[in-house]
């Protein structure tokens, strides 16, 4: 007698309600005639039930209050930015800055920092000592493509450069001196990521700091202290919260 063939994946999809209708109807019929098939199906039904029950208690554990509070703070910070944007062209956010806004700056760095390259105005991100990373140079702010990206590209987007590198503005903010600054990531063609902050000075973007992050393939040393480099910079320069996209667009437009 010819038995209809059903793969494990089909039985599983049936158990999960994901099998295409026609095939599911065929399986309905076949199940009625085959205990073996029903047993094979039961395995998938059971494992789902058991998995769900086994992990249910974790769902019932109380969520730490600070996590809930963090979401509320972030939502409040968001609203604050929007209101500020509505008030004036670009409101100076210092006084309104929620205390909790600072940690947001840690975010773009989660990709892994490996080496603090240096601090200081006009730094061109070149390091020719024979360290493990070799020379770090992004020819930063003389490259017209980099400049164009900082001038126009909204935060959260990225663009590929002709030399294979990629630039991704992370956020735009005003520092304590009301200078417009942008934090961005620069992925070199060789995979190294550089996180940098550039600020407007005399109509040009001036690199204020840069931190090299480990490449995706790098399994190397990543001191937690390098996270502090950016934090220290932002704190020292009294960086305001990131502008929302509208305010950012207005601020960039004003540069022209």
């Amino acid at each position: 007698m010819q038995k209809p063939e059903f793969t494990d994946e089909e039985l599983m999809a049936y158990a999960d309600g994901e099998l295409a209708e026609e095939r599911a109807s065929a399986l309905d019929l076949a199940l009625a005639e085959s205990v073996d098939l029903a047993d094979r199906l039961a395995l998938f039904v059971d494992t789902k039930m058991v998995a769900k029950d086994a992990w249910e208690p974790v769902l019932q554990e109380p969520v730490p209050e600070y996590l809930v509070q963090r979401v509320r703070d972030l939502a409040a910070a968001d609203e604050g930015t929007h209101e500020a944007a509505g008030d004036t062209v670009v409101a100076f956010p210092q006084n309104a800055r929620p205390e909790a806004a600072t940690p947001i700056w840690k975010l773009p760095l989660a990709a892994g920092l490996a080496l603090a390259v240096g601090l200081g105005a006009g730094l061109m991100l070149s390091q020719d000592t024979g360290g493990g990373f070799g020379s770090i140079e992004i020819a930063a702010l003389t490259d017209r493509q980099v400049i164009a990206a900082l001038d126009t590209l909204p935060s959260g987007e990225d663009t590929q450069l002709e030399n294979g590198a990629r630039i991704a503005p992370i956020a735009t903010f005003f520092d304590g001196a009301q200078t417009l600054c942008r934090e961005f990531e620069f992925d070199r063609a060789d995979g190294m990521t550089i996180v940098s902050v550039a600020c407007q000075r005399n109509g040009a973007w001036d690199v204020q700091m840069a931190v090299a992050a480990a490449a995706a393939t790098d399994t190397g040393y990543a001191p937690a202290s390098s996270l502090d480099t950016l934090d220290a910079y932002l704190t020292a320069n009294d960086a305001g919260p990131p502008l929302d996209l509208e305010a950012e667009a207005a601020a960039l437009e004003a540069l022209r």
């Binding site: 494990d8 599983m12 999809a13 047993d39 395995l43 998938f44 059971d46 494992t47 039930m49 058991v50």
Partner: peptide, 26 residues
Amino acid sequence: MSRLARARLAVAKKLGINTDTARSSG
């Protein structure tokens, strides 16, 4: 799908749910 099927077969095996006992244990 292929990973999920393999995962569930492996979990079933570890827990002693197999095609023979699946129904009764259910």
